[in-house]
Computed example of a mutant assay.
Amino acid sequence: MSPLSVLDLPQLYTKPSAKALLDTLALLTSAPSSWDYNADPDTKDGLDLDTQGEVERVQIDSEGVARYLTSIVSNSLKWIPDEEVKEEIWNQASLRLSERSGRTAMGDLNRRFTIPTRDGSFELNIHEPALTGDDLGLKTWAASYLLAKRLHLFDLIPPGQRDKARVLELGSGTGLVGLAMAGLGADVVLTDLPSIYTNLARNAKTNASIVEQNRGIIRTGVLDWTSPHSCTLFPEDVVDTNGDGDALSEKFPLILAADSLYSPDHPQMLVNTIAAWLSEDVDSKVIVEFPYRAAYLPEIASFRKQMTMIGLQILNEGEEKGFDDWGDASKDEDALVTCWWSCWGKNLPGQDS
């Protein structure tokens, strides 16, 4: 079926009903593109935008949509008597415009992610506040989504294992990777900076039931890489860092991190933190995934070098493609990123580095 033209939508000169306009604006909802490269855009493979109710998706030619939405925002809609309904129409039209201006122009989002398992899948609900300032951890990045979907392939939780895998996630952001690991049945501690913690704790609380159903455990805390040996955990019902917490003391046989290198200082800081919290077990592992962004390629090279200096070596690695949703990924080539994932283990005496 060919896409509808803007001219097929209710035209304002015909004085369409409020319901007709609201239904049309619902059809124009622009969910973020799937971050899977080669994914079917109609299915949004694994990613959806939380909406009120189910809306039948109709393809609409993007040509002229922004102008159509602007005409609604600027129209008095004087044939619609209900002032509250008119406000809702203007609000929805404004939201549709902001969605087409890229992620930075959008407000809060609630996203649903489907995470594959060895024998099925489960769904996580992730909240992203409106992006302000430099809090990049308030957005879910392509590398995090790709790593969350890849975790089950590492066989980190063997079938029938009684003791839960203990996992620490560094730079958790919105918590997608750590929550995915917990949803696979692990005992996971998610950590980030104080400015990120409130949203991280909110997402942990939102997904607590699905994690519990899958026999996982989640805890959240603050860990600043400038003080790599100090981590404070907060109770489940605490969503800010103003109260007292408990110092984390245990070390972990598995550490996760995704898309956390965007400063020349970060590689050394991240590796120092890994060294502080990785257990001495010979089979301890670190799994990371970072995008190959041109500006930060030196950071990846530095990370690799620093990891070897603390006695770790790459056990397995690969590349995969995905999209970051700063704009329309179908039109913005810069949204397509190649991500490098790697699994690191101990470089034991007698092993080749």
Rank of each mutant, 00 (worst) to 15 (best):
L348K: 13
I314C: 14
S172F: 04
Q351F: 14
G318Y: 01
Y37G: 01
A329K: 03
A258T: 09
L254C: 13
E289C: 14
N91D: 12
E212T: 15
W344E: 07
W141D: 11
D155E: 09
M1Q: 12
L22T: 07
V189P: 07
N316V: 10
L193N: 05
S260G: 10
P32K: 04
L336Q: 15
I72C: 05
K346C: 10
L124Y: 06
A26L: 05
C343G: 00
D155V: 00
A275V: 00
F303N: 05
G107W: 09
T308W: 03
E99W: 03
P158I: 14
I115R: 04
A20F: 05
P264Q: 07
I126G: 08
T24P: 02
S330C: 01
L270M: 10
W340M: 08
T338P: 03
L170R: 02
M106E: 15
I310L: 12
Q313L: 08
E87Y: 08
P10F: 05
K346P: 02
H127L: 03
L28I: 07
S62Y: 01
L136K: 01
G107I: 01
A329E: 04
D135H: 11
P116N: 03
W90I: 04
K78V: 08
W340A: 06
E317V: 07
L153I: 01
A258F: 01
V167G: 08
G216H: 08
T51I: 14
I314F: 02
A301L: 12
N91P: 00
P228I: 00
D237P: 03
R57S: 11
T174H: 05
E333K: 15
V271A: 07
E99L: 00
D192Y: 06
L223F: 02
S284N: 10
F234D: 02
D42K: 14
R202L: 13
G245W: 06
P41F: 06
T232I: 15
R111L: 15
R219W: 08
L97W: 03
G46E: 12
F113A: 11
